[in-house]
Simulated scan of single mutants.
Amino acid sequence: MRLGAVGALSLPRSSFSNHLSLPVNPRPRYSLSNGGASLHFPNFISSRQFSCHCTTKQAPSLELPLLPFVLDEVLIPSEVKTLHLYEARFLALLEEAVSSRNKTFVHFVLDPLSSSRSPLASYCCLIHIENIEKLPIGALVSIRGISRVNVVELVQMEPYLRGVVVPVLDNVPSEATQLDSKILELKDSISSLQALQIKLKVPKRERLQTQTKNSLFWAEKEVSDFLLQDFVPTQAERISFSAFQPVSGMSDTELLTVQREKLKAMESRESLERVEKGIAFVRQCMKMVAARLAIQSL
C-alpha cells in the first residue's frame, strides 16, 4: 500500500451564492495515477451557509486559496503528502499559490457531520508547496503542512475557494523544562522506530515508510524566514506533530488509529500533552514493527 497520496475534492462548477454544502454521507471515488490519488464527490448541492471557526480577537491574517478534503484526509503540520491535481480550477489554484512569494495555500476539511445543516471548515492547515511534477494530465504536487490556521472569512467561491485565515498556535507552556525533557524522549523514540523500520523487508510494490523521521527532520529546522513570523509554530510545537505518521505494515484498523490521533493532535492547544501522546503512539508503532520483524525472521 502506498501511503500519503491524497486527492483534492471536486467542487461543483455551478455558481454559488456565498455558500457551499456537502451531502451528509458522501461517497468518494478514487483514481490512482503515478502514486497520487484523485478524489471526487458526486451530487454536490448548494446551501445557505458555509460555517467556519471564527475568532473575534485581532490577529495577523493572510488571504489564500483554500483546497477542501474529506475528514479522513486531514493534514497536520510537518506532514508531507502528494496531490494529483488535474481539473482546470485546481490547476488555477496551484498557479496562484506558486506565483506567491511563499508558495502557500490552505488544506482544510469539510466535515458534513459537524453540523446538522451545514459543513464546517475545520482542521485547517497552512501548507507549503515543496515540489511539482508535471504530468500529461495535471500535476503531482508535494505539499508540507506548516501550521494550523482558522478560516475567518470566505472572499471567493469561483473558480476556487479563497479566504482569510489567522494562525492557531499552542498556548505558551508553563513548564519549559518538562517540555524539553519530553521532546528529547520523543526524538529518541522516533529514532528507535526508524531503526526498526529500515530492517523490514517489504514487497516491491510497498514503499518503506519513513515519514515520521522526515517530519521530525523538517520540524527541527529553523523556518524563521517563512511567511509572517506569527504563523510559524515554535520548534516544540512542530516537533510535537511529527510522531503521528503511518508506518509500513499497518492494517486498515491501525491506519484509522493514526487518523484519530491526528485529529486529536490538531485539536489540542498544549505542546506537552501532544508530545506525551506522540511518545505513546510511537512506542505502540515500535511494538507493531517489532512483531512484524519477528514474523519475518521465522
Score class of each variant (00 low, 15 high):
12 P>E: 08
263 L>M: 14
66 L>Q: 02
108 F>K: 05
88 A>Q: 13
118 S>D: 14
115 S>E: 09
206 E>H: 06
166 V>K: 00
223 V>P: 05
96 E>C: 08
214 N>H: 12
123 Y>S: 10
100 S>V: 12
131 N>W: 10
137 I>F: 08
290 A>R: 13
106 V>R: 00
29 R>D: 12
213 K>T: 13
195 A>W: 03
205 R>V: 13
125 C>H: 03
155 V>L: 04
60 P>Y: 10
106 V>H: 02
4 G>P: 06
222 E>A: 12
132 I>R: 05
186 L>R: 01
197 Q>H: 11
226 F>S: 04
151 V>H: 01
113 L>S: 13
104 T>P: 00
84 H>W: 15
258 V>W: 02
134 K>W: 07
253 T>H: 13
18 N>A: 11
232 V>P: 09
141 V>E: 01
229 Q>I: 08
233 P>M: 01
128 H>R: 13
292 R>W: 12
255 L>D: 05
23 P>L: 01
166 V>D: 00
127 I>Q: 02
124 C>F: 03
227 L>G: 10
177 T>V: 10
229 Q>C: 14
221 K>T: 10
278 G>Y: 02
54 C>Q: 05
190 I>A: 01
168 V>W: 01
283 R>Q: 11
184 L>Y: 07
228 L>M: 12
149 V>Y: 02
209 Q>T: 10
42 P>T: 12
214 N>M: 13
192 S>A: 08
151 V>A: 06
4 G>A: 15
123 Y>H: 07
184 L>R: 09
239 I>N: 00
179 L>Y: 05
78 S>E: 01
81 K>C: 09
152 V>Q: 00
19 H>A: 11
113 L>F: 13
234 T>Q: 03
77 P>D: 03
177 T>W: 11
61 S>V: 05
95 E>K: 14
222 E>Y: 05
86 Y>R: 15
143 I>C: 15
94 L>R: 04
70 V>L: 13
119 P>R: 03
126 L>V: 06
155 V>M: 02
115 S>Y: 05
94 L>S: 01
39 L>C: 14
264 K>Y: 12
280 A>E: 06
67 L>F: 08
14 S>D: 13
194 Q>H: 14
84 H>A: 14
285 C>L: 15
280 A>C: 08
64 L>W: 04
54 C>M: 07
170 D>P: 10
130 E>M: 09
225 D>G: 10
7 G>F: 11
198 I>M: 03
80 V>A: 06
216 L>M: 11
27 R>F: 15
267 E>A: 10
28 P>Y: 00
142 S>P: 07
211 Q>T: 06
267 E>N: 08
